[in-house]
């Protein structure tokens, strides 16, 4: 028994030695900030003054009277509500088109995948130029088919949609990769049987492909929503929340501005926690609804 105990003890030591560095780092930079963020949301802080008095629920009460936050929340919902269906449904069609063995298919797939590795900033710079109101290629091309000209990022009403177009370009390849992996899992026999029965391509797509892609669709809807609700880089860099006053203001942009530009870090922490809660609730609702609609094949 002594040997067994010793072996067990050494396993405990070995296990903790192996995970020690990782646990320490995640403790300091992963778990501590989660707790500290909650504490901060009940404090007044400008990130400079070491004195951060507790102010009770003041920060959370202030949420209700924040005019900019209301605008930003509205834009965040519009952005998410358009971006998610456009990118996911678009990716579905693109993936189905790409899921075949024809010449040039590797070229087509690469063309769709490449934007995924472009950073948000590099993408933004490309689109600032492409969407330039005066000299941009987009206005010239759209003019050829009799549309425009558009102000794009300079347009008070259009800027948010220009951001949607740009982020769909950057994201769609990601969704396509997930869909392609799921399409490979659809049994050929199923499609062939339907073809023999004389089903049209469209009805095969609707009645076989789309339902079997349900789990992938649910994953993409949840994942894209989580990311869409956290839109920041493009708004910060391209439109600065504008055109003035707040035509592309979104929640994370506003809480960043509050914390790091306007000296209201405690209040920003409260917004961050409320957004976290909203994301959590939305994710749970999406899974709940999704699991009723989506059928998982065994």
């Amino acid at each position: 028994m002594g040997r067994l105990r010793r072996a067990l003890a050494s396993d405990h030591v070995a296990g903790w030695a192996f995970i020690g560095p990782a646990v320490l780092l995640i403790g300091v930079f992963g778990i501590l900030p989660i707790v500290w963020g909650l504490v901060l949301s009940f404090q007044k802080s400008d990130l400079i003054d070491p004195n951060t008095p507790f102010v009770g629920l003041t920060n959370y009460r202030a949420l209700a009277h924040d005019h900019v936050l209301r605008i930003a929340a509205g834009h965040t919902l519009v952005y998410t509500g358009v971006f998610v269906p456009v990118s996911v449904i678009g990716a579905l069609f693109v993936a189905v088109a790409l899921n075949r063995k024809i010449h040039l298919i590797r070229f087509y797939r690469t063309a769709v995948f490449v934007p995924v590795v472009a950073s948000t900033i590099a993408t933004s710079i490309m689109f600032l130029w492409l969407f330039d109101a005066q000299y941009g290629l987009a206005n010239w091309l759209l003019g050829k088919i009799g549309v425009g000209p558009f102000g794009f990022f300079d347009s008070p009403r259009g800027a948010l949609y220009a951001i949607i177009a740009m982020t769909v370009w950057g994201w769609v390849g990601f969704d396509v990769i997930i869909y392609l992996a799921a399409l490979q899992g659809i049994p050929h026999e199923l499609v062939e049987a339907a073809e023999i029965d004389g089903a049209s391509r469209w009805s095969i797509f609707r009645s076989i492909t789309v339902p079997l892609l349900g789990p992938a669709t649910l994953l993409l809807v949840v994942w894209s929503s989580i990311n869409a609700l956290q839109l920041f880089d493009e708004v910060y860099f391209v439109t600065h929340g504008g055109p003035p006053p707040y035509n592309t203001a979104v929640v994370v942009w506003w809480l960043f501005s509050l914390a790091f530009r306007l000296g209201a870090a405690g209040y920003a922490a409260a917004i961050a926690y409320v957004l976290f809660l909203a994301i959590l609730v939305l994710t749970m609702v999406q899974f709940w609804v999704g699991n009723k609609v989506v059928h998982y094949s065994s």
Partner: peptide, 21 residues
């Protein structure tokens, strides 16, 4: 489980305290 749970927390929740740390 604790490590996995941190994956669920979006960056904007931890960015202010991480800056302070």
């Amino acid at each position: 489980m604790l490590l996995l749970a941190t994956l669920m927390v979006p960056f904007q929740v931890v960015m202010i305290p991480t800056f302070l740390i």
